[in-house]
Design a binder for these strands. Structure first.
Lengths: 126, 126
DNA sequence: CGGTATCCAAAAGGATACTG
DNA sequence: CAGTATCCTTTTGGATACCG
């Protein structure tokens, strides 16, 4: 086995725990999942559609990591067809609110960043 | 050429700009650079030592991306040996403060997350 | 010192097929 | 529907060598 297929984050290294938590929270899909769940609970496929362009695999991995960290609650109803709802825990809501604030900030400042990029690029491609 | 060596983020895709900015700010090394520079300006090697375990390549890439986004200011003094100081711009400081708050939150909640993980693991490894 | 360029290993991520 | 398992591609990241 190639050690890192299908298992999610590897996290086996010696890194301070809080850096690791920060990486889970700020990870590409973690950010989007947390922000989305801030609105309301979501089912798996619903979440997938809401976020867009995320593969099942990555969404599953992300949700499992966040659940393990105690940020997301997974509620699997024993029905056919299966139904699983994901929601934020109290801890998750705290994290999600901060992440959302950061996301709102980037939206608000997008124009400034884009202008800075243009200036940067023009300065070195004459 | 393998298209993506030595150049930094590829960012060529069609993604909403603010998601991209968020990824730069929350990237593995971006987070740490922003937090460190919040304290004071740093020189390249100084920053490398302060962060620890970051390669020259990744630090260079991260700094260039943040500079291009207008978050970090690069001040290269024309002396021998070269001396380059990095500091936050006004925009960068706004981002850095939010990122730092998130990092402080993870530190404060580390124990809770660790406990959640243990409960999670014990529940499925009997 | 503060980088670039190159090469290579490791990890992330996606497509597909399959299952309860 | 909500996953798992597998295979494969792309991206990330580090080591090394070199340059102004």
């Amino acid at each position: 086995m190639a050690v890192s297929d299908g298992a999610g984050w590897n996290d086996g290294e010696a890194m301070c725990p809080h850096r690791l938590i920060l990486e889970h929270v700020t990870s590409r899909w973690g950010v989007l999942v947390l922000i989305q769940l801030l609105e309301r609970p979501y089912r798996f496929s619903e979440l997938r559609r809401a976020i867009g362009r995320v593969s099942e695999k990555m969404l599953t991995q992300t949700l499992q990591t966040l659940e393990r960290d105690g940020l997301v609650h997974r509620d699997a109803k024993p029905v056919i067809p299966p139904r699983v709802d994901y929601s934020l825990t109290g801890l998750g809501r705290e994290a999600a609110e901060q992440v959302r604030d950061l996301a709102l900030w980037t939206e608000k400042r997008t124009a400034d960043v884009l202008a800075a990029r243009q200036a940067y690029d023009e300065a070195r491609a004459p």
